[in-house]
């Protein structure tokens, strides 16, 4: 197994991280960097709780080998959403609409909603459901998550 160091921009900060060839991005974030907001719900890319943004695009970090990340890639996790005390609008919307119960899905869900709105600032409910379909919320907060999307959508 070969070890190496890669350079990434994580939540806006330049970081150098030591990884092995087979280190998963999820494990790198959680175990090497202590960023625990991305969570392992299924390990097979089917639940969305490990979702992070890679250069703005949502990916399942449980399936992504850190060694395959392009040099300097930008990774965003839920920890990076807020600006100090100030919450990101997606966090505000989730909080106000009560878009979670246990919140195990919430980090991935918020990042997916951000990516959705970056692509389509005024999604219909049907469009939002299709985009978010790979994100499970076993607590069933789907209606409130859609309310949060509606609250955020607009020109």
């Amino acid at each position: 197994m070969s070890r190496r160091t890669i350079s990434l921009k994580i939540n806006g900060e330049d970081r150098r991280v030591e990884i092995e060839d087979n280190t998963l991005l999820l494990d790198m974030l959680r175990d090497r960097l202590g960023l625990k907001a991305a969570r392992d719900g299924c390990s097979v890319g089917a639940c969305g709780s490990c979702t992070v943004l890679l250069n703005g695009n949502p990916i399942s970090s449980c399936l992504k080998l850190a060694s395959t990340l392009p040099e300097g890639a930008e990774i965003s996790t839920a920890e990076g959403l807020a600006d100090g005390e100030r919450l990101d609008p997606v966090q505000e919307a989730f909080l106000e609409e009560g878009a979670f119960q246990c919140a195990f899905c919430t980090s991935g869900m918020m990042l997916a909603v951000k990516a959705l709105l970056a692509e389509n600032s005024t999604p219909t409910d049907e469009e939002a459901k299709t985009y978010l379909n790979g994100h499970y919320c076993r607590c069933g907060s789907y209606p409130e998550i859609l309310k949060a999307v509606r609250r955020l959508s607009g020109p």
């Binding site: 625990k36 907001a37 996790t77 839920a78 920890e79 959403l81 807020a82 919450l87 966090q91 989730f94 909080l95 106000e96 009560g98 979670f100 919140a103 919430t106 980090s107 918020m110």
Partner: peptide, 13 residues
């Protein structure tokens, strides 16, 4: 509003 909400949306729960 859920009292544990802020920690949950910050991803620090």
């Amino acid at each position: 509003l859920r009292l544990d909400g802020p920690a949950k949306v910050r991803g620090v729960q």
